[in-house]
């Protein structure tokens, strides 16, 4: 059996004395395509920081496979587009650690950057200014930057945030294509369950301090989701796609909040 890339063993995560999530135990095996889903404030970023090694568990352990290379794609808006950088310059940053401190990128590094851009379908934008690109093109640039470092696992933080329907579909399709074509392990963090559920193979759902992980079929059923969200939830299928719909609450439930209203801050 292949060793997992990331292994949580009874890990409790939090900041200072405040516990965000407790007793987490799960693995991310090689070849996995995992969606980490939950509303804002539910602990997704906390889990992500533990995986990326910038947050130590309060108890238990989070083990990262030796020599594991992350291909990290940050939230698109966390990047400062004020910098006058060309698309290739940004992509080459994904190789900065391989290039070494104090050294300059070589012609090979530049070629690899262009190859990575080609891999995500925007080689023709290599000489364009990053700030001049559309949201989808910026996202592809950041994905290319993550890939150029030849990572073992691609980690994407809210890759479709703020995108329209077309761009969202294109980016999610690209991520799935990369997973299938290159067999790269993917961890995709998102607040949008309906978007993620139709692309990933496994889902880790975090809500109000609770956490559940399983195959898409295990998580995307009415019993599990109704229990997690605390309101009646329907999982419908349309043309092979799963759609989660919250059932309309009765008037009394809406007025009193007894339907298990969730905080989505």
């Amino acid at each position: 059996m292949t060793a997992p890339l990331v292994k949580f063993e009874h890990a409790t995560l939090g900041y200072g004395r405040r516990v965000v999530l407790s007793d987490l135990s799960f693995d991310i095996p090689p070849g996995d395509f995992l969606g980490l889903v939950g509303p804002n404030g539910a602990g997704k970023t906390t889990i992500l920081r533990a995986i990326l090694g910038s947050l130590k568990p309060m108890s238990g352990s989070v083990t990262i496979a030796l020599g594991l290379r992350f291909g990290y794609v940050p939230q698109r808006d966390s990047v400062d587009y004020n910098f006058p950088l060309k698309v290739t310059d940004v992509v080459m940053m994904g190789r900065y650690d391989r290039i070494g401190v104090g050294r300059r990128p070589t012609r090979e590094d530049r070629q690899r950057a262009i190859d990575a851009l080609d891999h995500v379908g925007i080689a023709d934008l290599a000489e364009r200014q990053l700030s001049a690109l559309s949201g989808g093109q910026k996202q592809r640039t950041l994905i290319a930057r993550a890939l150029v470092g030849e990572p073992n696992i691609l980690v994407l933080d809210e890759p479709t945030n703020g995108m329209d329907l077309v761009s969202t579909t294109q980016i999610l399709s690209l991520i799935r294509e990369l997973h299938e074509r290159d067999n790269i392990t993917v961890l995709m963090v998102s607040h949008a369950l309906n978007e993620v559920a139709n692309y990933v193979e496994r889902i880790a759902l975090t809500l109000e301090g609770s956490f559940r992980i399983g195959n898409v079929d295990e998580i995307m059923n009415e019993q599990v989701l109704s229990g997690m969200y605390g309101i009646p939830v329907e999982v419908d299928r349309f043309d092979g796609h799963r759609i989660v719909v919250a059932r309309r609450l009765a008037t009394r439930e809406r007025l009193t909040g007894t339907g298990g209203e969730q905080r989505h801050d």
């Binding site: 090694g53 910038s54 990290y72 940050p74 966390s78 400062d80 940004v90 940053m93 930057r145 980690v155």
Partner: peptide, 8 residues
Amino acid sequence: FDRETART
């Protein structure tokens, strides 16, 4: 430019 990615 991007401290989070640099850290990873």
